[in-house]
Simulated scan of single mutants.
Amino acid sequence: MNKQSLVVYASIVMAMLFWSFSYVWVKIVYLVYNPITTVLLRLIISSFLLFIIGKSLNRIQSIKKEDRLHLILLAFFEPFLYFLGESLGLKLVSSTLGAVIISTIPLFSPFGAYLFHKEKISSKIVLGIIFSVIGVGVIIFNKEFNLVASPLGIALMFLAVAAAVGYSIVLKGLASKYSPLTLISYQNLIGIAFFLPLFLSFELNHFLSAQPTLKVWIALIELAVFASSLAFILFTYGIKHLGINKSNVFINAIPVFTAIFAFFVLNETLSFQKMIGISIVISGLFLSQAKLKFSKVKK
């Protein structure tokens, strides 16, 4: 492995680590702030950072008039709808379960691609989804088949998954025209506009009366800098050199990293049943992206 390849793989692994740890950082911020406040502050810090980087590198492009509506739709799906589902969902489910559900995004994206871009759905995708659904079931049900996680929390996490699929559909038409830094910068800025009315209506009073500790502020800054900014830049760098499919394989590691971090930092339980469920989900994800070859038996 040459030096450049090492840098590429290191960049992707770091992005996965930052996104994995984001589920832990969110739980820490929730000790003081509510979900909408958390997302809004995260986006404000991230947008400020990205525009400084983009302008200093002269990488922020102007958006053409015919693409502005698509950009608003892009921001509606992510960060608005995605973070709305994820942030509210993580109030009700564990960091590990949330990461497992979010990691199924690569499985459901092909259905959006089929409906809107006429891309074919292979049998391995369907098989991968079946595996992953079984894996999530192992985590959320006990031996008596009773839910051990909030149904509303699970539904909200899958809302985030649906939003990510919608995001990928819209993104395909814009990615060929604008740089990732441009799109991420503007979508975060528009996301602030979406979240601001909700914040002013429901969480302003709580925000003004909250007394954040240094630990909470550090976690919030880590979310904005590492998860919402640097991770996207590192992952985009990886996609540029490895391509989308090879890079997406690394997303499968997020539930594993999150489970380990949550165990040590948040003292979340890591039961044998949970480990089995995570393994099944990851197996389904890898299966959906594997190249299956069947050779004919010679007679």
Rank of each mutant, 00 (worst) to 15 (best):
Y33E: 05
L127I: 15
V26I: 14
F199V: 06
H241L: 12
S209Y: 10
I282D: 02
L171Y: 12
V7D: 07
M14G: 13
A155Q: 06
F207C: 08
S56F: 15
G85E: 04
L49H: 08
L198V: 09
L208K: 08
I239D: 03
V39G: 12
K172P: 02
T38G: 13
V93F: 11
M14K: 04
G89V: 04
S5L: 14
F76E: 13
V165L: 02
S201R: 15
L171F: 15
P151H: 08
M1T: 12
L292R: 12
G166M: 05
F76D: 12
E78I: 04
F235P: 04
L6Q: 08
F263I: 04
V170G: 00
G137R: 07
A210E: 08
L189R: 01
F250D: 04
S122T: 14
I260N: 07
S103L: 13
S168Q: 14
V133C: 09
S150G: 03
F145I: 09
L174V: 03
G153S: 10
V136Q: 04
K118I: 05
S56R: 15
Y82V: 07
A160D: 10
L127F: 11
F51H: 10
L156P: 11
L196G: 01
I125C: 04
D67P: 05
P110K: 00
L92E: 10
F116H: 01
F194Q: 06
L234P: 09
V161D: 05
L71P: 01
A253Q: 06
V136N: 07
F264N: 00
T37C: 06
V281Q: 00
L270W: 12
S228F: 06
P35F: 07
K118V: 02
Q61L: 05
I282F: 00
T213V: 04
L181G: 06
F51G: 01
G173Q: 04
A193R: 01
Q273T: 12
L159A: 09
A259T: 11
N34D: 15
P212R: 00
K296S: 11
S95F: 10
F226D: 03
S5G: 11
L107E: 02
A227H: 03
S122E: 14
K296I: 08
I72D: 06
L189K: 04
S179G: 13
F232V: 11
L69G: 11
V133T: 08
I251R: 06
F141N: 11
I125A: 01
A231P: 06
A149K: 14
S168T: 14
F202G: 15
R42Y: 05
E119F: 03
F108S: 07
I154T: 08
I260E: 09
K120N: 09
Y186V: 00
L88T: 07
V24D: 00
I244T: 08
S150M: 10
S279M: 15
S288F: 10
L152C: 10
L71N: 09
F21N: 10
I36C: 07
